[in-house]
Structure formats: C-alpha cells, structure tokens
Simulated scan of single mutants.
Amino acid sequence: MTTTTTYVPAGHLGVDEPRARFHDLVAAEWIKLRSLRSTWIAYGATAVAVVAFNTGTAYDTYNHWPQRDAADRAGFLRDGIALQEAFTTNAAMVMMLALGADGAVVIIGEYSTGTIRTTFAAVPARSSVMAAKTVVVLAVTTGFGVIVAGASFGLTQAILGRRGADVPITYPGALTLMLASALLAPVCALTGMAIGSVIRRTAATMIASVVVALVLPLVFTDGRHWSAVAEHATLYQAWNRLAEVSHSPTAFPWTDGGAWTVYAVWAFTAAGLAVTSAHRRDQ
C-alpha cells in the first residue's frame, strides 16, 4: 500500500478546509476579550471612577444647598447647572484616558505576548481579523458608554432632586450631553486601538494616548483662527462643545454639527488605521 501525502503551502487553505467567516472571527475576538479577567476589572474600575466623579459633584451641591441664598439657587436652576453635574469634565477626562488605554491593550497585549502570530497564522486575512477586533471593541465600549452615561444622569439627578434642583432628560441639551458622553467611550477606545496598532509598544502607546486625549487640547487656544480650528478638531473640545449648557461667545464659534463631525472623523479614521496597519506591516 502506498500513502500519498498532500502538502498545502503556508498561508493557503486545503480543499476541505472552509475559510473563516467574519462572524466567526467576531465571535473569536469576543471570546478573547471576555475571557480576560483584567478586561472586566478595567471596565469596572473605570465605570466606578466616572460615576463617582459625577455623583460626588452632585452630592457636594446637595450638602451645600442650604447655604445658598435665593438668588444663587435661582441661578443654579435657570442656568441648568444640574445638567453640567450629570457628566462633569473630570469624568470625561477619566473616561478618555481609561478607554484609550483599554482600546490600546486589545492590540498591544497580543503583540507583547506574541499571540498575534498564532492568530495571523490561523487566519492569514489580517485585515479581517483587525476588522473583527474593531467591531468587538466598538460594540463593547458603546454599551459601556451608554450604561455609564445613563447611570451618571440618573444618580446625579436623583441626588439633586432631593433639593428640588434636578432636571429631566427632556431638558434642552440633556440628550445631547448624554449621547456625546456615551459615544466618547467608543471613539476614544478606537483611537487607542489605532495608536497601539501603529506603535505596538506599551509605554509609548500610553504616552501617545495621553498626548492625543489631553495634551493637544491644552496646546491650542481660541486666540488665532488656525489655533481655534485645531482646538476644535480635538476630541475633548468636541465633547466640551456638545456638553455646554449655555454657549459663551467666542471669536471663532462653531456648531454642534461641527462637533459631531469631529467625532465621526476620529472614529472612522481610527478604525481604518487599525484595520489596515496590520496588513501593511509584519507582526
């Protein structure tokens, strides 16, 4: 008897071996993400920190409400300060830093351990693998953002409601603030993922994420037209524009539509960079 062995070139599938379907890749990436205990610890700690910043501000207002005079209380209600306390700037900064790091870890974790080689050996279609990772990160962080933003609004207004200083979700600008705060999570996570896919080094990626999220918005000012345009193009300033209850006059004003455009450009650019970077470089 003669045994015939058929060798399949590396990177090619055998006749009877089906190609990996995209939903299978998404399922595999979801298993990778949820099977890591550090994932849930990171998201849980971030959620607690963000909600704590918001509720802490509301509780401080609750405690000092009796010391306010009538004019101060009326101004608080008239100016919609309760809505500003539903999601504070400190909470937004924490979310940006944490979600950028979480998104980056999805990439640099596999590169640092070398498991990305196994993944690409099993599925040579690198762009499909990275697209699946992007879909999973987008879905998880969007859900995270919605839960945290909703919890922050509900808890802060419940605290302020005990003093009669709360606002309903139908208050002008409330839905915009909640949507902008919720979507800040996936956009920052995709940005961190894109940075990690390009740099592929933990320390350098984290530094770059901090620079992009918080340092760049501080570098530019509204004093010059070019500087104002650059400032408006940052994620933090886009969120800040959408979160403003009353818009103070500036030399170079912009609109909510411009801020939403910044969100979209950052998200699509980051996703595209994350998907294509692995295809153009060795692992």
Results as ranks from 00 to 15, higher is better:
237 Q>C: 09
256 D>W: 12
246 S>L: 14
261 T>I: 06
246 S>Q: 10
247 H>C: 11
243 A>I: 07
242 L>V: 07
241 R>Y: 08
250 T>N: 06
255 T>P: 07
260 W>Q: 01
264 A>V: 07
255 T>Y: 09
262 V>G: 00
257 G>K: 00
261 T>A: 08
256 D>A: 14
266 W>E: 11
256 D>K: 08
251 A>C: 06
257 G>F: 07
253 P>S: 07
243 A>K: 04
259 A>E: 06
237 Q>A: 11
254 W>N: 05
256 D>S: 10
251 A>M: 10
265 V>F: 11
238 A>N: 13
258 G>H: 06
255 T>G: 05
254 W>S: 05
263 Y>I: 05
268 F>H: 08
263 Y>C: 08
256 D>E: 09
250 T>V: 15
250 T>F: 04
244 E>H: 09
249 P>I: 13
265 V>L: 11
241 R>A: 02
268 F>G: 08
258 G>L: 02
241 R>T: 06
255 T>L: 07
242 L>F: 12
267 A>Q: 00
248 S>F: 06
249 P>Q: 15
244 E>Q: 13
261 T>S: 06
253 P>A: 03
264 A>K: 01
256 D>Q: 11
246 S>K: 15
266 W>N: 14
237 Q>F: 13
262 V>W: 00
242 L>D: 07
252 F>R: 13
268 F>E: 05
259 A>T: 07
260 W>I: 01
253 P>I: 04
260 W>H: 02
258 G>F: 12
265 V>Y: 10
247 H>V: 15
239 W>C: 03
263 Y>P: 09
246 S>W: 13
267 A>K: 00
242 L>H: 10
237 Q>K: 12
267 A>M: 01
261 T>V: 10
262 V>M: 00
243 A>G: 12
267 A>I: 01
249 P>T: 07
257 G>T: 03
252 F>L: 12
237 Q>P: 09
248 S>M: 10
252 F>H: 15
246 S>P: 08
247 H>L: 15
242 L>E: 05
246 S>A: 15
242 L>Y: 10
262 V>Y: 03
257 G>V: 06
257 G>Y: 09
250 T>E: 06
258 G>P: 01
241 R>Q: 11
244 E>K: 09
238 A>H: 14
264 A>N: 03
258 G>I: 01
251 A>Q: 12
263 Y>T: 02
237 Q>H: 15
243 A>E: 01
239 W>T: 05
